[in-house]
């Protein structure tokens, strides 16, 4: 896509363990346009968080290595960038919001100083202008009493407040990567946080890569969806299409396991089996061992088929 904010092409990343090398990100391609909100969904351990960490190169260098592909952020490939070049981009062009707002805030630093850090570094703000900007950001994420909150420590704030602080901390980048931003919060707070997130994105025209396993949040927040399974993208579609006509059996399973208010809870299905071992993954389609539609041909890698609506899936079912 021309003018894409983020364009990942054929990314491959390995984790070395004592048992062997795991390819946790296997030939992943993904595109996000300016201001677009895109979801990357899948079960835990499917490689979606690793994909996010590969973009920002925040994975521990010694254990995770990018072995192929490119990550174009605003047209520039991040893979060969040095540590200091990456530092200049993080928090500036690409920001991150994490899962657990308690552990991702420094417990012994006042919240205001934590919000101030990236502003000082990337925007060169100092003194009164810095303080004013910190207050603006706290206001923006709709926390009352900005002056008081700036002096507070994380443990003095509620979970929802902390998550707002993390959103404020992510500055105003071109791309925001949010990794399960509401999983640790209870449902009523979730909706508020998503609202705050939405309005912050709108304010700065920020694109979103939302990493989640919660299809409800996807429907609420995103324009397009990538479904990931065992290190690979198995389906890509616009949000309305993915709910209306999911193509990949795994996507269908994922949707079936979501409780929907228009159906009785008995309809809630849980997929059998578990995510395959990535050190010795099954040949061909990796969902084959759990797939209700598995066929003999599935033992070879399925082709990526795109239909006329732009919806793509890696499944032999679609090739007929």
């Amino acid at each position: 896509m021309a003018g894409a904010i983020l364009s990942i092409r054929n990314l491959k990343a390995d984790i070395g363990t004592r048992q062997g090398v795991m390819r946790v990100v296997d030939d992943v391609s993904l595109t996000i346009g300016p201001g677009e909100a895109v979801a990357l969904v899948g079960e835990s351990g499917c490689g979606k968080s690793m994909t996010a960490l590969s973009i920002t190169k925040l994975a521990p260098e010694r254990s995770v290595s990018i072995v192929g592909g490119e990550v174009l952020l605003d047209g520039r490939d991040l893979v060969p960038l040095s540590r200091s070049e990456m530092q200049a981009l993080r928090g500036n062009v690409v920001g991150m919001v994490f899962q657990d707002p308690m552990t991702f805030l420094n417990p012994v630093m006042a919240v205001g100083s934590q919000i101030a850090n990236p502003l000082r570094r990337h925007m060169g703000l100092r003194g009164a202008r810095l303080a004013a900007r910190v207050h603006e950001l706290i206001d923006l994420v709709r926390i009352p009493e900005a002056a008081r909150v700036a002096k507070s420590y994380p443990h003095e704030l509620s979970g929802g407040m902390r998550q707002r602080v993390l959103i404020a901390l992510a500055c105003s980048p071109k791309l925001l990567i949010a990794d399960e931003p509401t999983t640790a919060l209870d449902v009523t707070i979730q909706a508020q946080i998503l609202d705050v997130l939405k309005s912050s994105l709108k304010e700065f025209g920020t694109a979103l890569l939302l990493i989640t396993h919660n299809m409800g949040i996807v429907a609420d927040m995103c324009d397009r969806v990538y479904v990931m399974y065992a290190g690979r993208i198995v389906e890509e579609a616009r949000v309305e299409d993915i709910f209306a006509r999911p193509q990949h059996p795994y996507t269908r399973g994922l949707l079936a396991s979501v409780l929907r208010h228009d159906r009785p809870p008995e309809a809630l299905k849980v997929m059998t089996g578990s995510v395959p071992n990535l050190i010795a993954p099954p040949a061909g389609c990796r969902f084959r061992p759990r797939c209700p539609n598995a066929m003999a041909v599935c033992a070879t890698d399925p082709p990526w088929m795109v239909d006329d609506r732009g919806q793509g899936a890696a499944c032999w079912l679609n090739s007929r």
Partner: peptide, 15 residues
């Protein structure tokens, strides 16, 4: 985690 967070903000290694 807050160190990952600090790195995600692009803070220098010294900070």
């Amino acid at each position: 985690d807050y160190i990952t967070s600090a790195r995600a903000q692009g803070l220098g290694e010294g900070e």
